[in-house]
């Protein structure tokens, strides 16, 4: 079986400082990968390198494209990479405001990706947008409201709808539940878990919240100072951490 995404020796330096170094893993279709680590451990750098927002200094990110099979997205031309990020990829930002157009209605936000890939029928676009708002539990009569009138949790759900409307195969998520209160987090996670399972999505989730990866991720990578210190099945890593830092991370979670 061909991996959907094959990350090979990704290295990124910020001057003398290591962003991330020699990260390699394979992600298979339908698999959810969690990346955990403390602030500054390089997890967001890694995610941005994979999603094409940053250019890594070394390494390859091979994605199994629909038409041409496995292609290295780092050396791919920019139009191709941007096309990929509008169709097969999705990126969910930590702050919904980074991923949404705040001056455009909810329907327009969801429809933007459809129009970007050539959809030119207003009725169809609106129907799809309304359908997706329903799937992320936003009331259909909010379709013409701007995201500025939405709560934080709704904005985050809207961002997810906007990203998933074109049926991507790979979703990058940067702290999708950051900044939300726990009950909203729980609903969002429930929703994400449902969407990921129903659509057979592959996902890479960067977070520092171990509960998020416990719920969503099949596999887990623990990062520290730009290096991957431990990787394995989620339950295995969380229940029986081997590396000293993983042990510290797991034992730092407050038990209520």
């Amino acid at each position: 079986m061909t991996p959907l995404l094959s990350v090979q020796g990704i290295t990124k330096f910020y001057g003398q400082h290591i962003g991330c170094k020699d990260v390699a893993f394979d992600l298979y279709p339908g698999e959810v990968m969690g990346i955990v680590g403390e602030s500054g451990s390089g997890k967001s750098t890694l995610l941005n390198c994979m999603a094409g927002h940053l250019t890594p200094d070394a390494g390859a990110v091979v994605f199994d494209t629909r038409t041409d099979g496995p292609r290295d997205t780092v050396t791919m031309s920019e139009p191709e990479r941007r096309m990929l990020s509008r169709t097969d990829w999705a990126f969910v930002h930590q702050h919904a405001r980074d991923g949404l157009r705040m001056g455009v209605s909810a329907g327009g936000n969801v429809g933007e990706r459809l129009m970007a890939v050539g959809d030119r029928h207003y009725g169809d676009i609106r129907a799809k947008a309304t359908d997706w708002l329903g799937r992320v539990e936003i009331d259909a009569n909010r379709v013409d409201d701007r995201p500025t009138t939405f709560s934080g949790g709704m904005q985050q759900r809207l961002q997810i709808a906007r990203n998933l409307v074109t049926g991507p195969r790979l979703v990058f998520m940067d702290e999708p539940t950051g900044g939300l209160d726990v009950s909203v987090q729980a609903r969002l996670l429930d929703l994400l878990r449902g969407l990921v399972r129903d659509m057979g999505l592959s996902a890479i989730i960067v977070t520092h919240d171990l509960a998020v990866v416990r719920l969503l991720a099949d596999r887990l990578m623990v990062m520290k100072d730009g290096h991957v210190v431990e990787a394995g099945l989620t339950d295995q890593v969380l229940d029986d951490p081997q590396h000293a830092y993983s042990q510290l991370l797991v034992s730092s979670v407050l038990q209520v």
Binding site: E78, R82, V104, G107, G108, R113, M115, A116, V117, Y122
Partner: peptide, 18 residues
């Protein structure tokens, strides 16, 4: 330069929806 003009239609979409 990359002919990414989907955004222009977002403006027209907003017109119709409003």
């Amino acid at each position: 330069s990359l002919e990414e003009y989907g955004l222009m239609h977002v403006k027209l979409y907003e017109d119709i929806s409003r």
